[in-house]
Computed example of a mutant assay.
Amino acid sequence: MPDSFPALVVKKDDDSFSVGVEGLTMDALPLGEVVIRVEYSSVNYKDGLACTPNGRIVRSYPFVPGIDLAGTVANSTDSRFREGDKVLVTGYELGVNHFGGFSQYARVPADWVVAVPDGLTVRETMVFGTAGFTAALSLYHLETAGVRADQGPVLVTGATGGVGSVAVALFSSRGYEVVASTGKESEIGYLRELGAKDVKPRSETSAESKRVLEKEVWAGAVDPVGGSTLSYILRTTRYNGAVAVSGLTGGSDLATTVFPFILRGVKLLGVDSVFCPMDIRKDVWQKLATEWKPAENTLQRMVNREVGLDGIASAYPQVLKGEMRGRVLVRL
């Protein structure tokens, strides 16, 4: 392993804040049983927060962001992993309270590490990343709750973002009639390429109403938006339908009543990708490598661009503003 290697380092004190590429040594990395030569990471909302002075996500400085990483094991003191193994890490404290994936090398606890399953390349795991894993968990929870492709349309909100883009592709590849919601009229073609049968404007799927229930439309929904959008979804979900919620880009407040739940049996499913149990985590990644894997050209369409460490600064402001289409990969 090299004496030093590049990483994106965030620094903050009482008088200054900086984000830049610097050289690190192995001694600078936090404790863990597995050292990984990182090949790919990706840019997510939390990464944007970590790169801003008031993001309130980083607990101590200096810090290396990056809540995703995938690469090759360089060294391991845990018998579950050997040098040369292809592995990935998402969630847990990575990129939040533990140096993350915006670094050519990372050292992490072995309990966080997932072997890259046959059927996925290291790069493809980061096309999914935390956002895609969250979308896949939404599919997992909805199908566990009984939602099936023949029961009616599934709504995906925030559809041009990371979670939304992957959700459109995953559900359509599973045979669902996917209706995508976006505030970006210019991206309708992109969403149809991913498999959306119809696209609705954000103004329609976030409209407020005094009615506690409206016409039954959705068999299920994937919602990384929250706020008034989630209120609309709950009013319009079909009898015995389910909603998987994973985000709050539209706000954390929720105006609803008990009526969707007690009159229609609607199920509201919380999706947490950070501390997802390892048995479910491995199962979902295995499905993404096999029966849930979208076509290769669909995977590539979800990639907005690839950047190096020095290109992250141009990407995270767009992610924070909700202006990014699809995924930004970081190539180490």
Rank of each mutant, 00 (worst) to 15 (best):
Arg202Pro: 10
Tyr316Asp: 02
Ser314Leu: 12
Lys200Cys: 12
Ser273Gly: 05
Val166Tyr: 03
Val245Pro: 07
Lys86Val: 12
Leu88Gly: 01
Gly183Phe: 11
Val108Arg: 03
Leu263Cys: 10
Gly20Asp: 08
Ala315Asp: 12
Tyr92Ser: 13
Ser252Asp: 10
Leu329Tyr: 14
Asn97Lys: 14
Arg82His: 12
Ser172Ile: 13
Thr249His: 00
Ala136Arg: 03
Gly308Gln: 03
Tyr105Trp: 11
Gly164Met: 05
Asp15Val: 15
Trp285Ser: 00
Leu8Ala: 01
Phe102Lys: 01
Val21Met: 00
Val274Ser: 09
Glu143Cys: 10
Thr72His: 10
Arg305Val: 14
Phe261Ser: 04
Ser209Tyr: 06
Pro2Ser: 12
Thr72Trp: 09
Gly158Asp: 02
His141Ala: 13
Val87Asp: 09
Phe63Val: 06
Glu143Met: 13
Val96Lys: 13
Gly161Ser: 06
Met126Thr: 13
Leu170Arg: 06
Gln151Trp: 11
Ala7Arg: 01
Thr52Val: 15
Glu124Thr: 08
Asn240Trp: 11
Asp310Asn: 12
Glu39Arg: 14
Val154Pro: 11
Gly189Lys: 10
Ile312Gly: 01
Ser42Trp: 00
Val179His: 10
Leu254Trp: 06
Ala50Glu: 02
Gly91His: 03
Pro260Thr: 10
Asn240Lys: 15
Arg82Trp: 08
Arg238Val: 12
Asn297His: 15
Ile312His: 01
Lys287Asp: 02
Ile188Pro: 09
Ile36Arg: 04
Thr125Ser: 04
Ala242Asn: 05
Gly251Asp: 04
Arg264Cys: 07
Thr229His: 04
Asp198Cys: 07
Tyr105Asp: 03
Ser203Glu: 12
Ala106Met: 00
Gly91Pro: 08
Pro294Cys: 05
Leu94His: 03
Leu230Gly: 04
Leu268Phe: 03
Arg202His: 13
Trp285Met: 00
Val35Lys: 08
Gln286Pro: 07
Gly227Tyr: 02
Asn54Ile: 13
Met1Tyr: 07
Gly55Ile: 15
Gln300Met: 13
Thr25Pro: 10
Ala167Arg: 07
Pro317Phe: 05
Val19Trp: 07
Val96Glu: 12
Ala207Val: 08
Gly48Cys: 03
Thr290Leu: 05
Pro53Leu: 07
